[in-house]
Amino acid sequence: MALCDLTGFQRDLLVVIAGLDRPSGQTIKTNIETDADIDINHGRLYPNLDTLVNRGLVEKGQLDRRTNYYAITDAGREELQERESWEQEYLEGAVG
């Protein structure tokens, strides 16, 4: 399972990207900051987004000359689905 090699923050980025339509880095940042009630600086955000791109879980493209977008790849979606199934195996016993 490749997602176990990611940090929790990187998994959160992947989930947010999966739930949005080609968000910019700023949109991803705003969503996580709002949901988690934390501040994220660019020095943390963009290297972690690059890690997801380098691992083939996210693709990066240009919206315009200044703004990039991020989109989950098929591999990223598959990893999220596998992770969700794995979590459900354990949560079913804990919640029941």
Rank of each mutant, 00 (worst) to 15 (best):
Q81L: 14
L20T: 07
V16E: 07
Y90Q: 08
Y46N: 15
A2T: 13
Q81C: 05
R44A: 15
Q26N: 10
I28P: 00
E87K: 06
D37V: 07
D39W: 03
E59D: 14
I17E: 02
L6E: 00
Y90D: 10
G25Y: 03
L3D: 07
E79C: 08
V16F: 04
K60N: 06
K29R: 07
L91W: 10
V58N: 00
L57M: 05
L6N: 00
L80W: 03
D12P: 01
T73F: 02
L6C: 03
E89R: 08
Q10H: 03
N48V: 05
R65I: 10
G96Y: 14
W86D: 12
Y70V: 02
P47T: 07
E82S: 15
V15S: 10
K60L: 05
A2G: 09
N41W: 14
P47Q: 13
A18L: 11
G43F: 09
T73G: 05
G93K: 11
E84W: 04
A75M: 07
T7Y: 06
D74F: 06
D37T: 07
I38K: 07
D50Y: 05
E92G: 09
S24A: 08
L52Y: 00
G96S: 15
L45M: 15
V58P: 00
L14R: 03
T73Y: 01
Q62S: 14
E92M: 13
T51E: 01
E82I: 11
T67R: 06
N41Q: 11
N54V: 02
I17G: 01
T51I: 02
G76W: 01
E33Y: 02
L49V: 06
E82Q: 15
T7V: 02
L57I: 00
A36C: 09
D12M: 11
K29F: 03
N31H: 06
Y46C: 06
G25F: 02
H42Y: 08
T7N: 05
L6M: 04
V95G: 09
A36K: 11
T51D: 00
W86T: 10
I40A: 10
L49P: 01
D64W: 06
G25R: 03
C4W: 11
E92Y: 09
I28W: 00
G76N: 03
D12C: 11
N31Y: 05
